[in-house]
Amino acid sequence: MADMLNIEPTKVTSWGTAALLGEGPSWHQDSDRLYWVDIKGQQLHWLDLPTGTHHFQTVDEPLCWVLPTDGDWLLAGFHRSVELLHPSTFTRKRLFSLQHEPSGNRLNDAKLDRQGRLWFGSMHDQERQSSGNLYRMSEPGIAECVDSGYVVSNGPAVNKSGDCLYHSCSSSRVIFRFCLDDKGNLSDKQPFIRFSGNMGFPDGMTIDSEGGLWVAQWGGGGICRFDVQGKLERRIAMPVPYITSLAFGGENLSRLFVTSASLPLSAAQRKAMPTAGCLFELDCGFSGVAEVSFALPDMYQPD
């Protein structure tokens, strides 16, 4: 990676406590909150932007992601199920389970596309078998497997115009690009970006308002921006090595939030890097694209 691509941010702020596996930052405009999860720590975290206060709640199983809905609930991916989760009472209402998933799998990253369809992946929890899948939920409560063969499926992201979906096989260091039609069908899967060894592994992803694709570098200690042709345009170094995902939030979507992990570090490394696992915020000079909320059908409105 050429030195000229490395850009130092003017300021990096850390929020929250050190998660084991911080993941899935998600901006929820209606509540002025930035949510994220600690998958291995089984916690939901959120940052109230108006007050700058951090909160968290422990749950009874791995929580892999949360996304906004058009109601008072969060759309949440647990270990092997998709549920509604109330952010105040923490009441849960299951939408569906993935009973056919191999026993060693769990859910991983998820995103909503421009039409509000849910895309989410599964992975082998020990990262040894290519048993992970990519799913689409275009009808309430019905998940369809649309791609398979992933050890670690990661970072679905949809481009600004909504006709392209990115999804990575992190263990192979490859980000794929699919054509996405208006009915939610995928076609023309192509390798789009390949990480070299010194870049680490591609993890979570997001899109900026100019169409750039931002990718977290697991083991690479930074975040990368690629242009619409897949060319590396810049890299921003982060203060810890295991960067997991990122999302734009705040007013005008001009604040970039980045999650990280402390789990792979030794006790000595954690002591030397006390912010490993924290949520970071930085000004990257770009703004994001407004995310779509999941529309709750009447049949799935909690009692």
Rank of each mutant, 00 (worst) to 15 (best):
V258W: 01
G200A: 11
E139D: 10
E23V: 02
G230M: 03
T89K: 09
L112D: 00
M123P: 07
V289T: 09
S130R: 15
D208H: 07
N198F: 12
L279M: 11
R234W: 04
M273Q: 06
S196Y: 07
R255G: 01
K271L: 13
G77L: 03
E251P: 05
P50R: 05
K111C: 10
F294I: 03
T89Q: 06
G52K: 08
E127A: 14
S97N: 13
G132Y: 05
W218T: 14
M238P: 05
N6A: 12
F176S: 15
C64P: 04
F201V: 10
P274F: 08
T51G: 06
S262R: 12
R92N: 03
V215Q: 14
N105M: 07
N252C: 12
N6L: 14
D30W: 03
P102K: 06
G219C: 12
D48Y: 11
G212M: 10
R94Y: 01
L5P: 02
H45G: 04
L98I: 06
L134M: 09
A216V: 08
F178P: 04
I7K: 14
W65L: 11
D30P: 08
Q229W: 06
S196R: 09
Y150H: 11
R270Y: 08
A261L: 00
L98M: 00
L107V: 00
E61N: 01
V59A: 02
R234V: 06
L63C: 06
Q229V: 09
T69A: 01
L118C: 10
S138L: 11
S97D: 15
G116K: 04
V37W: 05
G219Y: 03
S196P: 03
I7Y: 06
S170Q: 12
P274C: 12
T69I: 02
I39P: 12
S153Y: 00
P239D: 08
D181P: 07
H79K: 15
D38M: 03
Q217G: 05
D3P: 02
V59N: 02
R255T: 07
Y242N: 15
S148R: 14
S262P: 09
M205I: 08
T58M: 04
M273V: 10
K183R: 14
K189I: 02
T53G: 05
F286G: 08
M199H: 12
M4I: 13
G200F: 05
L20P: 03
G221I: 00
R114D: 11
I223S: 07
L246I: 04
T53Q: 15
P191W: 09
C169N: 15
R106I: 06
P68G: 09
D72S: 10
V152G: 05
I223A: 08
A295F: 02
P297D: 04
F286E: 13
T275K: 00
N252H: 14
T244I: 07
R173G: 13
S138G: 15
P140T: 11
D227N: 14
R114H: 14
S130P: 15
L256D: 01
T17D: 11
L186Y: 05
M205D: 04
I236C: 14
E233L: 13
T17E: 13
W119V: 01
A76Q: 01
V152Y: 09
A276I: 01
L49R: 10
L213D: 14
Q43N: 12
W119I: 00
M1W: 04
T89R: 12
S88A: 13
A272I: 04
G22L: 01
V152S: 08
S266F: 09
M299T: 12
T69S: 02
G288E: 00
